[in-house]
């Protein structure tokens, strides 16, 4: 009898406790910056597409929900012709982000992606690209790589000598 009353009392007292339930969606929910939510494709500090279409995210993806096709601009800079993520398959494991050698693909703390129609869960490059650098600032893959692209000749990448002069006989 006592214990029943005690329980009733405790339940009653909960009505005056601080509320745990968040009034979502009226009140937006703040997630930590490293939360693994919606995937985006970022740009490098020069506002160029960061993704170099290396296929490493797609091979890392355990559910195979990323597909893309590489292509090149006329100066040899490689980028994806299309880039598709099927979010209805994605398990938000973050392996793609970990595999990405350019910081292009990033998971951000946004999870508001519900759809009535599953077909709308298929995101193309236009839906994935953002305007900025995302979580990782400063890195520019093409400044480090040896490949020549528009505006960066051989020998002009970070930590590179100027190209070998083949006509030199100096030892």
């Amino acid at each position: 009898m006592i214990s029943m009353l005690r329980s009733l009392w405790m339940v009653f007292m909960h009505a005056f406790k601080k509320r745990e339930t968040v009034l979502y969606p009226e009140k937006p929910y703040e997630l930590p910056a490293r939360y693994r939510g919606r995937i985006i494709l970022s740009r490098d500090p020069d506002s160029q597409e960061r993704c170099v279409a290396c296929y490493l995210c797609s091979v890392a993806c355990p559910v195979d929900c990323i597909s893309l096709q590489a292509t090149e601009d006329e100066h040899g800079r490689r980028y994806p012709e299309f880039f598709r993520i099927n979010f209805s398959r994605c398990i938000f494991c973050g392996l793609c982000e970990e595999a990405c050698p350019t910081y292009a693909i990033q998971l951000i703390p946004d999870f508001e992606m519900s759809e009535y129609d599953r077909q709308n869960m298929v995101y193309e490059k236009e839906d994935l690209m953002i305007a900025g650098e995302g979580k990782y600032h400063g890195y520019n893959f093409y400044k480090v790589a040896g490949l020549k692209i528009a505006g960066k000749d051989k020998g002009e990448a970070e930590n590179e000598e100027s190209p070998v002069d083949l006509n030199s006989l100096m030892p």
Binding site: D64, C65, I66, S67, R84, I85, S88, R89, V122
Partner: peptide, 16 residues
């Protein structure tokens, strides 16, 4: 065995 993109390559036509 590393073949990729099978749940995504046709998804633009049909997600199923």
């Amino acid at each position: 065995h590393r073949y990729t993109g099978r749940t995504s390559m046709h998804a633009h036509k049909n997600v199923h």
